[in-house]
Design a protein around this nucleic acid. Sequence first.
DNA 1: GCCGATATGTTATGATTCTAACAAGATTTG
DNA 2: CAAATCTTGTTAGAATCATAACATATCGGC
Lengths: 230, 230
Amino acid sequence: MKKAERLERLEDRLKDAGVLHLSDAASHLGVSEMTVRRDLASAPHLFSYLGGYILPAGSERSTYRLDAEADTHSEAKELACQKASRLVEPDDTIFIDCGTTTPRMTEYLPLSGKLTVITYAMNVAERVMKRPNTNLILLGGLFHASSQTFSGDEALRSVERLGISKAFLSAGGLHSQHGATCSNFHEVPIKQAVLARAGLSYLVIDSSKLEKIKPAFFATTDQFDDVITE
Amino acid sequence: MKKAERLERLEDRLKDAGVLHLSDAASHLGVSEMTVRRDLASAPHLFSYLGGYILPAGSERSTYRLDAEADTHSEAKELACQKASRLVEPDDTIFIDCGTTTPRMTEYLPLSGKLTVITYAMNVAERVMKRPNTNLILLGGLFHASSQTFSGDEALRSVERLGISKAFLSAGGLHSQHGATCSNFHEVPIKQAVLARAGLSYLVIDSSKLEKIKPAFFATTDQFDDVITE
DNA sequence: GCCGATATGTTATGATTCTAACAAGATTTG
DNA sequence: CAAATCTTGTTAGAATCATAACATATCGGC
């Protein structure tokens, strides 16, 4: 058995198991741990190796799943999104912000009528594109892994040419004195452009965000028509 | 600082970094490693912990299942993409077109260096965003489910402001007389804008496309520096 | 303030992982 | 066939990780 074959078997095995311990891999391949180490070192584009465990390459940067339970304050966010979705009418053109809260709205949006969803968040786009009877407009640009969003001048210009009936914004903090703030500065221009263009603007947050302050300020409290929490 | 806050900060940090060493996490949070261990143990649904390293939960399950077999001329496309990827150098800025062929290139691109990938195809973006050390620029706009792409004026204007060293285009047909054609008219403006801006342009197709004609014409054969097939 | 309960830090010990160096076997090449 | 090269295995010491036990600190009633 040659190195190439071992690498292939490792790859296959990883697709099933997800992670593999060095010692398991060694016995599975019938070679010493040292050989597996050397195999791994020779193919860093295929595998990641962390403290004795083998992973498929790139899984460190996996998309953040929004599985119902795999998130802090999950039930609160779910509830807030259900309430927010009730405000959407079948023929609206709505903006949905990034984060772990507002993307959940996609599950509760009305299916009748011709809804149009505008977003700059990948996790929102991925969900909306699978819906029937729904237009999706994604504001593109440079991708930021930290927030799963895009940023760029052209996106701002696009917003100015769109009609937005209702905007659903998210925030990392909402403070009575210091308004709405978020963690990433690149989100600020888009949020502000949307706020300026939207007919009605809502802030959708779970109550744990109240009275918190994050580094990037983007709006005062009175710029929102309503704040929706659980 | 309470446990809940530490967990949130860990989550944020992981979104950026992907993995985090126990000792880094401890110093980042200003607590002992033992406390971080205990925090992790109390929230196994949020994090995976392997040999001293913290990962987002579920990242072992990287489901990069390719539609590889569920596609015609699959091996031919795969081969063409491998050949095309060999033309890419570590610090290039490349454009990758839509379809079922060119998105496979993402698997073979070099991992060293700081690659930048420009695209208007959702299936390309979804793959590139999971790669480390890679910038992703998505040309946004209105989503077309038929080709999994976006279209819009702002995207065209974005292309004019980008420097593209190599462009990898796809086509539904390449005819000796009638040039390169595709099935969707909304792809034409982007393809043409990219052709006009790219340093080198390649057409990546499997040989079954040769001498075929599709409804939307977008380029003559001599506009490409090379045609890459299996 | 006092108390119990919970949270956090420290230490020590054993297990595991990492790395380098060398030896033995397999493969290529002239 | 023999030398050179590449591959693999073994060993040992250093570094790191895991776990438990205990000490200290903090918090929330009463």
